[in-house]
Design a protein around this nucleic acid. Structure first.
Lengths: 161, 161
DNA sequence: CTTGTTACTATGATTTTCATAGCAATATGG
DNA sequence: CCATATTGCTATGAAAATCATAGTAACAAG
């Protein structure tokens, strides 16, 4: 699958070059660790989610953590390798906000840079203070519109079971 | 397809959430503009490449440019929207180099930051001078090993026609 | 002992992708 | 002129992935 190439983009794509995989990672970065939540917010079928979580685990981006024995239940968490994917997510987010939406639709998230206490913006460096932003130095908050969208998806999901 | 979501990651993935698409973009960033070269270096079948180039054009990342009439031949070039994808490529490259390869395999590319004349490294800011790096401010050079790999792929491709 | 919760698995239809082959339009060499 | 090469695709049928829909397993709560 890796095609035995030296190209890091090809190597990365062999792991994360799939829509569902990235959406699952998005949910994990959003601190949604349960199967059901991931399924509801990505809109994937259970087999899709199961399959992606399995390969993400095999590829070392995700670990399963028991949160309940009897019945055995797991939460899915990012490993260091998974966390390291954060800059890609942020770059993808920036591109998506800038080029895949009309400005009047509004943002999905607002990030605050804890180091300076001001908005972090979309770039790899804080738009307020110019420092490179790390995940640990930011808090993200959903805009009301996006929060409503997610709530609605959850309700719709629950209604079908 | 966009699923009518406000999430920029989902929006972006609807466009570039596919292995072949990203590999095609990689070749365009590498200034390979011909169908044949893209096919050879990505390893895709002609229909894959045709299909991706078509959707990339429809999504506004790529334009076709006539380089020869009679027979009519096109080159594929990145639009502004396509060029704007560069930070994602760099972030993906950084993650791939760091997490999808053993260090002894070596790098595929060396980038020089033209502003300071020193190596740019893997991050969003130049490792030598600390300035955010833009595509126009960098020159990339393939490492000998990676160049040989590409030459070999081209030879192998040519040999089958 | 019925209903609810969570995390899946099973199944058959549909869609996508793959490998292999071929074609169209022209340039080039003899 | 006629055969071969070049470039950029299209066609075809087999194989694999994905989808919608339904169901199951293992327990908890009432």
């Amino acid at each position: 699958m890796t095609d035995q190439t030296l190209c890091p983009v090809a190597r990365a794509e062999a792991v994360v070059g799939d829509r569902w995989t990235v959406l699952v990672l998005r949910e994990l970065f959003a601190r949604n660790h349960r199967f059901e939540e991931i399924q509801a917010q990505t809109g994937g079928t259970p087999q899709m989610i199961t399959a992606r979580l399995k390969t993400l685990e095999a590829d070392g981006l995700v670990t399963r953590r028991v949160y309940n024995k009897r019945p055995l239940r797991h939460e899915y968490h990012l490993t260091e390798k998974g966390e390291a994917f954060f800059p890609v997510m942020m770059a993808l987010r920036a591109w998506g906000e800038t080029w895949c939406k009309s400005p009047r639709e509004g943002r999905a998230m607002k990030y605050t840079h804890l180091v300076c206490g001001k908005p972090a913006g979309l770039g790899p460096v804080c738009e307020s203070c110019g420092e490179p932003v790390r995940r640990a130095d930011m808090v993200g908050e959903r805009t009301p519109k996006y929060q409503r969208e997610r709530d609605a998806r959850w309700e719709a999901f629950k209604a079908t079971r």
